[in-house]
Write a protein that binds this DNA or RNA. Sequence first.
DNA 1: TATGTTTATCGTAATATTGCAATATTAAAC
DNA 2: GTTTAATATTGCAATATTACGATAAACATA
Lengths: 109, 109
Amino acid sequence: MGATKTEHFTDKQNSIATMAKALGHPARIAIVEYLIKMNECICGDIVNELPLAQPTVSQHLKELKNAGLIKGSIEGNSICYCIDEKTIEKLQNYFAAISKKLEKRNTCC
Amino acid sequence: MGATKTEHFTDKQNSIATMAKALGHPARIAIVEYLIKMNECICGDIVNELPLAQPTVSQHLKELKNAGLIKGSIEGNSICYCIDEKTIEKLQNYFAAISKKLEKRNTCC
DNA sequence: TATGTTTATCGTAATATTGCAATATTAAAC
DNA sequence: GTTTAATATTGCAATATTACGATAAACATA
């Protein structure tokens, strides 16, 4: 086959995987970092920041949006993009919880 | 075309993306969660935990290993798998840093 | 209305991922 | 040495992703 068997896993596992997958490309990491670095919403200007053609960037933005990592709202001629804090927070909480569990783990290996 | 243009991005961006990508599949999330839940290294037993065929699980384990998320050492007949804390910590630090930046961000959107 | 700007979508080629049956490898147990 | 087990590798089909040229859509402005 070739399609991921999402139905065999929990909603939470699928949800975390979806977010992680969206960040699993350096261009999308770069987009997220740019949005954070600029410390505000960015209207336009994202395409020029990346070494990729406009349709490719548009596609990456779409994937980040589908995964809930960014939000985009129409602002006249251009589109205003923002980090979606809630989703980033979910990821952060997830890794924080994992790290905590690892701390008090039995030592081995 | 079709291959990710890693050369255009920073080492750090590529590194984070590689780790995120490795976690971008629910089976691999499930493996990591199982290793953490069991609170110790697991020798054998991982294949039976997942609703996937043995070669598929083996492949997922390989990808987690390549991304540095788990370690595997030969333990007699079977193989002993472990979370690689350092890598998880890198991810955790990354998201913690992002969250911190988002906290003191200008409000918009 | 015509023109330029910005972003999205379509179509498509190249490549990567997912999943598994079959087979190989490795090492313990007999 | 043969059998049994656990895991890896190979080969392949189905599907997904990445990238971009061409084109469309939406809107501002001349």
